[in-house]
Design a protein around this nucleic acid. Structure first.
Lengths: 245, 245
DNA sequence: CGGAATTTTGACGATGCTCAACAACGGTGG
DNA sequence: CCACCGTTGTTGAGCATCGTCAAAATTCCG
């Protein structure tokens, strides 16, 4: 044991106070730890706020940190040598950020909206993970969930047409958004541009736009004008478009 | 400790003997265990041989077992409600089979070739995993590798054309196959039908066939006639087709 | 209000899918 | 050993979907 300076103690106390009121205390990897275990982890974690559009990690960078998303949303993108881009994952509050067993990142991570995250130096995090089996188990669980999600998306990219992809995407956002409003509509906030939707769905901006107006013409959705958000009028109908029997 | 019957002891001895000469003793999850730790795992594992084409697990089944691939190859497929199919993963010797934190499987696993595997009852395997941190760490590593692989494939499905997908696939197989032969060609065995290649690449049988004959016409590959295998003549050129600058 | 950025809409064309015929292969049985 | 037949793979013609290019419309933001 090394001696702990007053500054260290103060830092730890402050950090664990931050953790205690953290928005993702019960959903991130941290939820696998008891309050008293959290002290060590919080001592190595540092809160960061990143503005929309900013890159967190570039493909090709040496992996030096991992993180948990606290609020906001990130995109994970892969690209071809000649610059075509595909979004291969979205990260929301509670999700883990980083390629753990890779020295050089193969993916780029970018903030879609302003995002708060809790980031950890690589070596220190790996040490903590090694000494908290429940946390490691939870990371395994989350990684397998990401894998299932990636596979579901591979099915869409390989076998669904533009209409099904767009309808399915809006439908997923609607599920995440929760319960219907008074008038039966579900208000869905779309945390990305048309270009990013296109990169996610493996389409072009124009095709996404056309499909959205198609869904609107079919009476399944509308747009709160002047905003990026949309209102799902008929979520059952939307699901039928996304998943034809 | 419960008393161990003679039969139990005999089984364990036999099983660990099987493990000792196992083809994937040094590449599967088992490689994280010392010989003496392997006894408990081998006691719950059972060798199975599955003929080509046979389904291991159906989507919708309750998950009751996991497994390691010992030899052969498996495909993992997802499908739409109306029956379109996409291969979302391939499993080779040493790979782990199963959706660990899911009660009901969302994916179907099928043998591409005759396949030997070592399968474990769910509960028993989870118990063993929990008591061997190195094995759990290794499973995490493999799962993250699968995730990276899935993401690479999402890039192809979303953003690469038919020619690039087929050339890339043959190129990958060639890498896996190893070093060039005397005449400079690399003999590549393709462990699947055209239909399965199509399901993997998100194309149709006809498009795959056309692209292959295109690569042959370009002098990049040839076919040992009467066989499914192919000979890569110009792996550099193949890579150039798959990854245009 | 004005200019840049984003989104929508339109016209056109290319890529890859559908449908169909044909060829090659493999196993079976005479 | 070869004829037969089912399966798998190849090739061709036509077409639908989605991408490309271009312009108009809308939104954003100073």
């Amino acid at each position: 044991m090394t001696t702990q300076t007053l500054a260290d103690r103060a830092h730890a106390a402050q950090a664990s106070a931050v953790c205690h009121e953290c928005l993702v205390r019960d959903t991130s990897l941290c939820s696998s730890l008891h309050d008293h275990e959290l002290v060590a982890l919080s001592a190595i974690g540092r809160r960061r706020t990143v503005p929309a559009g900013q890159v967190i990690t570039w493909a090709g960078d040496v992996v030096t940190t991992f993180a948990n998303v606290v609020s906001g949303a990130l995109k994970v993108t892969a690209s071809t040598p000649d610059g075509r881009e595909q979004i291969v994952g979205l990260l929301f509050p509670g999700d883990f950020v980083g390629q753990m067993f890779t020295d050089e990142a193969s993916l780029t991570v970018t903030a879609l909206t302003e995002t708060k995250m809790c980031s950890f130096p690589r070596a220190a995090f790996e040490r903590e993970l090694g000494s908290h089996a429940r946390m490691e188990r939870m990371l395994l669980e989350r990684t397998m969930a990401s894998l299932d999600e990636a596979r579901e998306r591979m099915l869409s990219l390989g076998r669904r047409n533009a209409q099904e992809r767009v309808a399915g995407f809006i439908g997923q956002l609607a599920e995440r958004a929760g319960l219907p409003r008074d008038d039966g509509g579900i208000h869905v906030s779309i945390p990305m541009s048309r270009g990013e939707m296109a990169d996610l769905l493996g389409l072009t901006i124009e095709t996404v736009s056309r499909q959205l107006t198609g869904l609107k013409a079919a009476g399944l959705i509308t747009f709160a004008k002047g905003e990026r958000d949309c209102l799902v009028l008929d979520s059952r109908g939307l699901d039928l478009v996304a998943n034809p029997a």
